Simulated scan of single mutants.
Amino acid sequence: MAWKAEAVVFLAVAFPAAGALAALQPATGIPEEVVQLTQFGPAAGVLVAALVWPERIRGRLAGLGTGARATRADTAWAGPGRAGWWLLLTALLVIVTAAGAYALLDGDARLTDPRSLAHPFTLIVLAQLVGACGEEIGWRCFLQPLLRTRFGPLAASALVGLLWGGWHVQVFARRPGYTAGFLLATVAMSVVLGLALEGVRANRLLLAGGFHTLVNLGMLLTMDEEGGTVAPMLLFGGACLLAAVPWVLRARGTHGRWHHDHPLPAAPDRIPAARHGAR
């Protein structure tokens, strides 16, 4: 099937490209605190897929296969015009919950003054946004719409989250509790992103990249999970899970059934010129 071929090509490039970029980073002199080159592995996967299926991948990136627009009742929560605000607020909620729980557990609020970082914070923010978009163009702008042509929104989002977590292969060298917390976080965040962006075509990359950037910056300034400590990662995963609950509850229809629980039509091989812009 065409969708399987697209997914295989994307993943077959994204995984090794991330490893190659990680090996290349020391030679570039770019500090990992500023941006990790591995983040551009998914972008490389999209690029190769686009060289093979240019029209079809253009349809994915244009947002075809992301679900119908929300109904008038839905817009009071997170319709296409408001999804971004709720999504960014969710990112802040994740960080506040995780950092607050960690401070209570550890007895120390591990807050880092942005001015104490080795590089200008403005540079870090901009580089983090670029790096996050390098990931999200693959996960949320390509793979999520692709899987939505075969699965419902929750299943597609959870599957993307598992693949996203597995793509961070280095976490599997950590303690089991750390790995479990990380995978819980990636699946829960993917569910938030998938459900929040369901039906949204305009600015999908900026919305997903903004959420991703806020979470990364929050972890940089409030947590110390990078050293492999299990507790902050488990708390982070738990915070992500809690943040996903309202999005899942909102997505449920009457009698426990999902809105848009059916797969969506695949992007056509050719896209009429009138449909190139975002709705």
Rank of each mutant, 00 (worst) to 15 (best):
L88G: 12
F121K: 10
V248C: 04
M219Q: 13
A118L: 05
A23Q: 14
P272K: 04
L206T: 12
G277K: 07
R275P: 00
P145M: 07
G67I: 04
S190D: 06
G152Q: 03
F172K: 10
R174L: 00
G237D: 06
G79Q: 04
L87K: 06
A251P: 02
V34A: 11
G194A: 03
A180N: 02
L249C: 04
A23L: 15
D106R: 11
A103I: 03
T112E: 01
G161A: 05
I57T: 15
H255N: 14
W139M: 08
A185K: 02
R201C: 00
G45W: 08
Q128W: 09
R69L: 00
L193V: 02
V48Q: 09
A208T: 05
P42T: 12
T254M: 05
L206E: 12
A231N: 06
L207E: 03
T222Y: 04
E135H: 09
P176S: 04
L126G: 14
P80Y: 07
D108M: 02
L123H: 06
A109R: 13
G81F: 06
V191Q: 01
A267C: 07
G277R: 13
P42D: 05
A76C: 03
V230R: 06
G210T: 07
G253P: 02
G63W: 09
Q170P: 01
A5P: 02
A266K: 07
E33A: 15
G199T: 07
V245Y: 00
M233V: 02
A274W: 08
L206G: 14
G166R: 04
E225N: 12
R250P: 00
S157T: 06
R275E: 15
L217P: 11
A231W: 11
V52T: 08
R150D: 08
R201D: 02
G29E: 02
G29W: 09
A239T: 08
L184M: 09
A173Y: 05
N216M: 04
A5L: 13
R270V: 15
V245S: 01
L235I: 06
G59K: 12
I95V: 15
A70P: 06
G138T: 10
W53G: 14
A20H: 07
Q144Y: 14
A173T: 13
V125I: 15
V48E: 12
A83Q: 10
A273M: 01
P265Q: 13
L195P: 09
A273I: 05
W85Q: 13
L92V: 15
D113S: 12
P145E: 05
L24V: 10
V171F: 04
W164Y: 08
Y102C: 08
G177V: 00
H259S: 09
L147N: 07
H259D: 08
G209P: 09
V9D: 03
G59H: 05
G256R: 07
G84M: 11
R250V: 06
D269K: 08
F172V: 10
A231F: 02
L217M: 12
C141I: 00
F236N: 02
A50K: 13
G138F: 01
T149G: 15
A173V: 10
A202N: 12
F10Q: 11
A17L: 06
R250I: 07
A231G: 00
A156Y: 09
Q144D: 03
K4P: 05
T229D: 14
V171T: 10
G84A: 15
W167K: 12
A243D: 06
M189N: 13
R257N: 10
L242W: 01
L242S: 05
A50Y: 11
R175C: 00
P272G: 13
L159Y: 03
F40L: 14
